[in-house]
């Protein structure tokens, strides 16, 4: 029939879904990572814990510090099991000492 969509097999293969997040490091974590920010590509449906595992491949010490790190996504505190979305800003927040 004219106008029928081509069968799915005719479509180009769909790239695996992925997200890109901006990660911010502060204070001792900036020293540890040797940078203040990085862009991280992760599979869709990744959580903060997944992001940490990914970065700990480069810097294993990060996994040691993680239990004492808090997390913020787009400036709101969240727990490590929080999901990440494309374009999120993830901040790794060591124990604070303002005042």
């Amino acid at each position: 029939m004219a106008g029928t969509k081509p069968p799915p097999s005719a479509s180009p293969p769909v790239a695996p879904a992925a997200i890109s997040v901006r990660v911010l490091f502060f204070a001792s974590l900036a020293d540890l990572m040797g940078e203040r920010r990085r862009r991280l590509q992760l599979p869709a449906d990744s959580t903060i814990a997944d992001a940490l595992r990914d970065m700990a491949n480069d810097v294993p010490e990060l996994a040691v510090r993680a239990p004492h790190v808090s997390f913020a996504v787009n400036e709101a505190f969240v727990s490590a099991d929080a999901p990440l979305s494309d374009g999120d800003e993830l901040a790794l927040i060591p124990p604070v000492s303002g005042g």
Binding site: F26, A27, S28, D31, H68, P94, P95, V96, S97, G98
Partner: peptide
Amino acid sequence: KTRVPIWKKEFFRDGAVWVE
């Protein structure tokens, strides 16, 4: 002091440490 993301670094004569 419990929830504002600000960090203090103490500088000594022979080095410096982040207070965390």
